[in-house]
Design a protein around this nucleic acid. Structure first.
Lengths: 78, 78
DNA sequence: ACACCTATGTATAAACC
DNA sequence: TGGTTTATACATAGGTG
């Protein structure tokens, strides 16, 4: 490792372990919500395709915004 | 690597990359369904707790079996 | 609020029990 | 059918732009 020199940028911290409990900081909570919602929807899609299952999901964010996903039979676009 | 000797157990394959498409083999599909359904439900719970969100999910397996999850307001046990 | 980055934790495909 | 193990792929926290 290089010696700590204040003129040199600090190294990235990388990921930290978290505990599953409500995130108090509003900004962090919204960021985490956005990321994890996308991950959850992706996994729902994968489950539906891989396993030929029907999956429906509705998510209300803490601000009241609605997100939904349906693999097939509730999908009005099909 | 060791040479292939039939008297020696083959090494574990570990995980392989998969393509997201319907799993044809019924047994594999059911095993994958069981594992991924559990993973999906866990992530739904985490999202609800971490981000103070409301999440509802229903899953029908290809054999018609129903699984459901609701973080709060549809939960008759609360 | 969104996209990208990367170190690190988590999910999971195969195999075996 | 469900649990365990292990190697590897994937998700993601924290940071930056």
């Amino acid at each position: 490792m290089e010696p700590l020199n204040p003129r040199i940028k600090p190294v990235r911290m990388g990921r930290r372990k978290i505990v599953i409990q409500r995130i108090d900081n509003v900004t962090s909570r919204q960021i985490t919500f956005s990321k994890r919602r996308n991950g959850l929807l992706k996994k729902a899609r994968e489950l539906a395709i891989l396993c030929d299952a029907e999956v429906g999901m509705i998510i209300f964010s803490s601000t009241g915004r609605l997100n939904e996903f349906a693999s097939t039979w509730l999908d009005s676009t099909s």
